[in-house]
């Protein structure tokens, strides 16, 4: 009897230990969200979203240019990374047999592990140096390189999941392979491919390091891709280490906006993936 009691107790203890360990990863997330919201919500106002920042010492001002810049960088980076990444994924899934495909696949995996600041240096060498000055374009190039591996591998995986019989249905109608890819495979995998793209966007929008010497930052409004541009992570970085109280408050506000943007993208792409899994029909 006593043995049974102890065994049951141990069983219980093990269960609680595992439960606590499992909750551990969620703790920092909850803490971050709580901290950011508590500190940052106060600085959110209409002005905060649509105005430029004020010089230190003055009250008010906003990060409108940084929000616009972040969106612009994301759009520019997507314009470059999405077509290349999707085509590369199509190539890996549909055409790559043998060594060359394996090389492309490994390159994508290695690229995923390259520190983002190194990609900033690459964009600096490729774009900033030849142009002679910082620009949104160079920042977008760095971010696009970061997006690529995620889009490539997720597109490949999604297309590989599409049953062979669907390809054959199209081919048997006398449709050539390329049209089959374009008109059957990509539409069929569209939700999954979009999910990959959104996840990659969520991944790059919070990046600071690759923008430090590419997009560089800009205290004014800018929509010209060839000029430097502000971005939310840069704002947070600069303001948070400034000695001015007002700026530090703005850094918290910018963190809230950035976190919510990234979180929103993440949740939305997860929702798409969940729908893709056959739920919620």
């Amino acid at each position: 009897m006593k043995g049974l009691f102890w065994r049951k107790l141990k069983d219980r203890l093990a269960f609680f230990l595992i439960l606590i360990l499992a909750l551990l990863p969620a703790l920092p997330l909850i803490h971050i969200l709580y901290g950011i919201l508590k500190q940052g919500l106060a600085s959110l106002s209409w002005e905060f979203f649509v105005h430029l920042s004020r010089p230190p010492g003055e009250e008010g001002g906003g990060v409108g240019n940084a929000i616009l810049g972040t969106v612009m960088l994301a759009v520019l980076a997507s314009l470059m990374a999405v077509p290349v990444g999707v085509l590369c994924g199509v190539y890996l899934s549909e055409y790559a047999r043998g060594k060359f495909g394996e090389v492309v696949r490994i390159s994508a995996d290695v690229l995923q592990g390259v520190p983002s600041i190194v990609l900033g240096i690459v964009a600096y060498l490729w774009v900033v140096k030849p142009m002679g000055h910082f620009s949104a374009l160079s920042g977008a190039v760095a971010l696009a390189i970061m997006m690529l591996p995620v889009i490539v591998r997720s597109t490949e995986e999604i297309l590989k999941m599409i049953p062979e019989t669907l390809r054959e249905a199209s081919l048997a109608l006398g449709v050539n392979y390329w049209r089959t890819v374009l008109k059957v495979l990509i539409p069929t995998g569209l939700v999954g491919i979009s999910t990959g793209i959104l996840l990659s966007l969520a991944r790059i929008m919070g990046e600071t390091a690759p923008l430090l010497f590419t997009a560089f930052g800009n205290p004014f409004w800018n929509l010209n891709p060839l000029q430097p541009v502000e971005a939310l992570p840069l704002t947070v970085f600069k303001y948070a280490i400034s000695p001015y109280e007002e700026w530090i408050r703005q850094a918290w506000g910018a963190s809230v906006v950035l976190t919510l943007m990234v979180l929103g993208l993440n949740l939305f792409s997860r929702f798409l993936a969940w729908r893709l899994g056959g739920h919620g029909r």
């Binding site: 019989t165 054959e168 081919l171 048997a172 006398g174």
Partner: peptide, 18 residues
């Protein structure tokens, strides 16, 4: 061209889902 003249129905129904 061959496949335009010789159609095929497969073991499992495979309509285009989209």
């Amino acid at each position: 061209l061959v496949r335009r003249r010789v159609g095929m129905v497969f073991q499992r129904p495979n309509p285009f889902p989209t």
